[in-house]
Structures are given as structure tokens and as C-alpha cells.
Amino acid sequence: MSGRPPSTRRVTGVAALSVVALVAAVVCGLAVGPTPIPVGRIVGALFAGVGVGHSTLSPLASTIIWQLRAPRMVLGLLVGAMLAVAGGTYQGVFRNPLADPYLLGVAAGAGLGATIAIVDVSGGLATPTWTPVLAFLGALVAVAVTWVVGGRGARTGTATLILAGVAVASLLTSAQTFLQQQGSPTSIARVYIWLLGSLASASWGSVLLVLPYVAVCVTVCVAAGRALDVMSVGEDESRSLGLPVARVRLIVIVASSLGTAAVVSVAGLIGFVGIIVPHLVRLLVGTSYRRILPISVVVGAAFLVLCDTVARTVLAPSELPLGVVTAVVGAPAFVLVLSLRRRAIT
């Protein structure tokens, strides 16, 4: 350990690199696929979209770009940004490096909601409409129950809240598994696909659905960076320094959970982004959440779009579940981060 936090110059360098990665991810998200479309033409079409020059894309290529790849890429940006910043925020508010966006039961609640819609025991639910709605509601109900059972974030501490999250998640996962077993083989397969996450059903409609949640929740989480830095000295010290800890905790948990619920409802349960990205960023820019959170937004967005590009091209025309790709890329990256951190400490 050098004994000094990373310099501003280094942080600026990392921020610039993450923006480069984001641009690369956007280009890959648009250009890479079974139908090759030259990057130059895509860039020309993008400029034409804002009134500069003419698009040289064929009608088919234009449809592929604007109706298939662009909404999927934009949704990937939103999902990745939200999961990464929510994970970083949870790690800050719970002062727990193992925290991820699903800590308080969002994943289990969304999984149960989606399973109810997909298995559709009553036969009255139209899957494409009801799956995101019930997933969203399930996620919010799960977090609300965790919050109440866990003592509403009172001074009993965050450990109670985390334990309540574990209990609620276990209960809801059991219910989801039971319900899944009652379904037909087709619905079981569809539940599995949903649980592993995918952007295959992305459309401009789904982008518009989650955009307001992501915009507001990401802004709130990033703005909480300074408060999370204060909270790094512990609850009592933070309060003695003038931080309304209970209020900050509530706001941050609501923003993280609401945004996560929104993206999970349209993209399923995508793992690893929320834990690996903030850790990777922390290793590069230090422990200040004022730095970690905004850079995590950019890195998370880039990471998910790149993973999705892999997911939809490696076995084309079939797709790999996105959660599998993020885990395959994320797990080794996580191990690498941990070993680098260990080396940095020793």
C-alpha cells in the first residue's frame, strides 16, 4: 500500500478510459451481429439522425440497427448502469463489500412475480405484459417486507436488515421454486431463461418503460456519494458529524431498489454486474464513493452491452443467457480483482 489515496490524475485517467470503453461498447452493440454492418455507415446514420449528413444504410440494415440492435444496446446501457451503481451504493450503505443489488430480496421477489406470470396457473395473465409488471411488483414487495421485518433500518443496525433480506429471499425463492414445478415443461424452460437474464425482448417500449426509473435512481445514487463517504466512519460517528443517517439510508435503499426492480423486470436476473463492477472501479480509483459511483455507472453500462454482444453472437442465431456471460466474464475478473487487491495490500 502506498499510504496515499489514488491521485486526481489517476482518477481522471480511469474515468477517460471508462468513457472509451463505453463508446467501444456502443459501437460493438450496434455493429456486431449476424448481419455485418460497417461501423462507418452506422456512424453516418447516427449523425444523420441528428441532422448531419445522409445515412447510407440500406433499409434492411437501418431496420436492424434502429429496431433491433439500438433499443437492445440502449436497454443494456440502462440495465448495466443501474445494477452497477445500485451494487456500489448498497456496498456503501451497508458497509459490506459482499453487498449486491439483490441483497434485500429484489431478485427473489422479481423471480416469484415473473414465475407467477409465466406459469400462469389461473390462465388469465398474458405473459409479455404481465411478466415485467409482476416482476416489478414482486421486487418492490420483497424489499418492503425486508425493510419492515428488518426494523426499518433503525439503530439496531444494518445487520438486521441484511438478515431479514436473506430470510425474505429464501422464503420467496422457495415459493418461486414450488410454483415453477407446477408449470408445464415449456413454462419451466421460460422461467429458467427469465431467471438467467436476457435483453432479447428489448424494444424502444421497454427502454421508455425503465428510462425514467433509471434516470432518477442513478442520479439519486450518484448524488449520495458524499453521504456514503461520511458513512464510511460508521453510524454513530456519521451522526455526530451531522449526517441524518436513517434518512440517507432510506433514500438510498429506495432509489437502489426501485431502479433495480425496474431493470430486472425487463431484463431478468443478471448477476455479477452489481458486485464486480463497483469492486473493479474501487480497485482503480480508491474507496471514495464520489468517485466509485459515477465511474461505475459508465463501466457497468459498457460491461453489460459488451457481455450482451457476446451473448447474442457466440452461438448465433441462438443466444446465451446474459447472466451466464456476465458470470463467465465476471467470476474470473472478480478473482483477478481480489488477487490484485491482496497484492496491493501486502
Binding site: S232, V233, E237, S240, G242, L243, P244, V245, T287, S288
Partner: peptide, 23 residues
């Protein structure tokens, strides 16, 4: 309020937390 109190009383705790990575 916490904020008002922090402008009136400062505390040096018995076991202060020194967060790693903070200058």
C-alpha cells in the same frame, strides 16, 4: 437535528473508524 447538533457538539469517540483509502 443531527446537523444542528454537529455544529454545537463535536465528538472524539473511544474507537474511531479510520476508513482505508481516505486522505
Amino acid at each position: 437535528s443531527e446537523r444542528e447538533r454537529a455544529t454545537r457538539i463535536a465528538l472524539v469517540p473511544q474507537h474511531p473508524v479510520a476508513p482505508p483509502g481516505m486522505s
